[in-house]
C-alpha cells in the first residue's frame, strides 16, 4: 500500500475505508460471504421447528410430507401441555413484576454510588449471570426441599427473579447514564421533593430502559430450564420443563407446536425490547 498516504489527523476515524483496490473489494466480499454464513448458522436452525409443527404424522422427520394443525389442537386439549403454558405465563408475569421493581430500585441506587462502590455493587448484582446455573440449581433444590418450596409459585418466581435481575439492571442503568441530571436538579429547585422528582422526572425519562428490562425479565423466566428442572413438581411444571421431558421421552410433534409458539412469543418480545432500547440510544445522542 503506497499511493494514498495517511489523511490529516483531523478527519474522523469512522470514515469507511473506501475500497480503493480490487483486491480489497474481493476481501470485503469474502468477509460478507463468511458473515452471511455465520448469520445463517445462528438463525436458521431454530426455524425448522415451524414447518415441523404443521406435520400431519406422528413423527419428527424433517421436512414433513403432509400438513395439518392437529399438534396445535393437541397442545391445547392436552391438560399437561396447556397447564405448563399457563404456569409459564404466571411465573413469567410475576417474575417480570418483581424483577422490574427490584431491579429498577437497585439501578437507581447504583447510579448514586461513587465509581468504586458502583463496580463492587454491579459485580455482586451481575454474579448470577456468571456463576454456572447448575451449581445454583443444586443448592436451590436443597433449600427448597427443606423449606417446602418445591413446585410452588413463590419458589419459581423467587428463583427466576434472581436470574432476571441483571437483565433489568443493565438497560435501566444504561438509561440512567444517559439522563441529564440537571433536569432532576431543576425539579428539586422548583420545590419538588425526592419522591416527586422520581415519579415525575426520573421514571418517565428512563421508562424505555425499564420497559426493555421488563421484557427481558419475562423472556429470561419464560426460557429458564435448569433451575426449573430441579424445583418442579407434578403440580407445577413450566413449559420448558415439559418440553425437556417430552424430548427425552417420546417423539411427539406437539413439542414442535410448543416450540413454534415460544419462538414467536420470545422473538417478538425481544424485537420490541431491542427497538425500544435502540430508540432510547438514538434519543440520548
Amino acid at each position: 500500500m503506497s499511493a494514498p498516504t495517511v489523511t490529516d489527523g483531523a478527519t474522523r476515524a469512522s470514515v469507511p475505508a473506501a475500497p480503493r483496490k480490487p483486491k480489497r473489494r474481493v476481501g470485503r466480499g469474502l468477509l460478507w460471504a463468511f458473515s452471511a454464513l455465520v448469520a445463517f448458522w445462528l438463525v436458521a436452525p431454530a426455524l425448522v421447528v415451524i414447518p415441523l409443527s404443521f406435520t400431519d404424522k406422528q413423527s419428527l422427520a424433517f421436512p414433513p410430507t403432509g400438513w395439518s394443525t392437529r399438534w396445535y389442537e393437541n397442545f391445547f386439549s392436552d391438560p399437561t401441555w396447556a397447564a405448563s403454558l399457563w404456569s409459564s405465563i404466571q411465573v413469567g408475569l410475576l417474575t417480570t413484576v418483581v424483577a422490574t421493581v427490584v431491579g429498577t430500585a437497585a439501578a437507581l441506587g447504583l447510579a448514586r454510588l461513587g465509581p468504586r462502590g458502583q463496580t463492587l455493587a454491579r459485580g455482586a448484582l451481575m454474579a448470577p449471570i456468571i456463576v454456572p446455573v447448575i451449581v445454583v440449581a443444586v443448592g436451590t433444590y436443597a433449600l427448597f426441599l427443606r423449606f417446602r418450596l418445591l413446585g410452588t409459585l413463590p419458589g419459581f418466581v423467587a428463583a427466576h427473579t434472581v436470574l432476571a435481575l441483571p437483565f433489568v439492571i443493565i438497560p435501566v442503568s444504561a438509561s440512567l447514564a444517559g439522563l441529564d441530571r440537571r433536569l432532576q436538579d431543576a425539579a428539586a429547585i422548583c420545590g419538588a421533593n425526592r419522591w416527586a422528582v422520581l415519579r415525575q422526572i426520573t421514571l418517565p425519562l428512563v421508562a424505555p430502559g425499564i420497559l426493555s428490562g421488563a421484557l427481558f425479565a419475562f423472556v429470561t423466566s419464560f426460557d429458564e430450564v435448569v433451575i426449573s428442572l430441579f424445583i418442579q413438581s407434578p403440580y407445577l411444571r413450566t413449559l420448558p420443563v415439559q418440553m425437556y421431558g417430552s424430548i427425552t421421552r417420546d417423539t411427539d410433534p406437539t413439542i414442535a407446536a410448543a416450540a413454534t409458539m415460544i419462538l414467536v412469543i420470545t422473538t417478538s418480545l425481544v424485537v420490541v425490547a431491542s427497538a425500544v432500547a435502540l430508540r432510547r440510544i438514538k434519543h440520548a445522542r
Binding site: 436452525p45 425448522v48 421447528v49 426460557d223 424430548i247 416450540a259 415460544i262 420470545t266
Partner: peptide, 13 residues
C-alpha cells in the same frame, strides 16, 4: 434471546 429449549430441540431434529 431465542429459547434455549427451542434451539436445542431444533438441533435434535
Amino acid at each position: 434471546w431465542t429459547s434455549l429449549m427451542v434451539r436445542t430441540f431444533a438441533w435434535v431434529i
